[in-house]
């Protein structure tokens, strides 16, 4: 299971980097989203993955063995990271909208007005 997810993460990174290198700003932004999800999956994977294991145990329940448990901390971290990337996604889309309104272009090569000629 871990191996499959690891390969999947690698593919996501490849897609993300490919999209980042495109000239269109929309594709660039999609690339950022893909990269952020790939990174979240890395954290998720770092705690190890167990099928049908449980994280939290009630007080009355008998002790669960450590082997059958998944580490709950990375999942909490991923939640935090997802919330952060949600906020950033909202901001980045608003920025794109505003930029398009001002300039009417999707082309990254047009981003050179502020450079020294």
């Amino acid at each position: 299971m871990e191996l499959i997810i690891a390969i999947f993460i690698g593919l996501l990174y490849a897609c993300g980097v490919y999209l980042l290198l495109r000239r269109s700003i929309v594709k660039l932004i999609l690339g950022v989203f893909v990269l952020s999800n790939a990174t979240n999956l890395i954290i998720f994977l770092s705690g190890g993955i167990q099928r049908s294991g449980i994280s939290f145990i009630g007080e009355q329940a008998e002790k669960a063995s450590l082997e059958s448990m998944t580490d709950p901390l990375p999942q909490a971290l991923v939640l935090t990271a997802i919330v952060i990337s949600l906020g950033i996604s909202a901001y980045i889309l608003a920025l794109k909208y505003k930029y398009f309104e001002k300039t009417g272009t999707h082309d990254l090569d047009q981003l050179s007005k502020t450079d020294q000629k």
Binding site: L20, V32, L35, S36, T39, N40, I42, I43, L45, S46, G47, G48, L73, P74, L77, A81, I88, I92
Partner: peptide, 17 residues
Amino acid sequence: NLISSFFFVAGIGLLYG
């Protein structure tokens, strides 16, 4: 700066692992 954040978080993930 977002890319730098991804590097940082990915590093943290591996470190925790």
